[in-house]
Design a protein around this nucleic acid. Sequence first.
DNA 1: TATTAATGTTTTGTATATCTAACATTATGT
DNA 2: ACATAATGTTAGATATACAAAACATTAATA
Lengths: 68, 68
Amino acid sequence: MKTRIKELRARNKLTQADLASLVGVRRETILFLEKGKYNPSLKLAHKVAMALGSTIEEVFIFEEEDLL
Amino acid sequence: MKTRIKELRARNKLTQADLASLVGVRRETILFLEKGKYNPSLKLAHKVAMALGSTIEEVFIFEEEDLL
DNA sequence: TATTAATGTTTTGTATATCTAACATTATGT
DNA sequence: ACATAATGTTAGATATACAAAACATTAATA
């Protein structure tokens, strides 16, 4: 799964560490999310979207493979 | 977290087992989701929303506690 | 260029989503 | 009332999100 976290983080002038502390996770978690290295829980996805002033569907990009 | 799965399932005339097989999980997983007993992965939440002809934010109801 | 901030990587441990399977209860239909 | 479908519950196993911590690399800035 791809995301727009990096882009939106830049737009909001937040470092990974900033976003992590807003959301209550470790910085590495944000890094892994950003790189599509894992599939977050729905609540975490929601918190990230809120912290970026956005919505889940805007932040996370679902691909066809996500339907199999 | 609360959901509208039960309501939307009824509207689409799907049993828990129907929805489970559409989405590729076990029936119990749908049951637990429906009852708010756990916090699904983002991909699963997305698949459920698609199978119900809806969106994540329409299917899953985020509460304030989901921001702590 | 030297120092610090930001990002990236790796490893180990833990919590929990999801699976599997079996059984129990409630609804639906004949 | 009986049969079957749908829903609910419980318990044990497995995969993985996420934590924690330590270190490595790249960007930024004085």
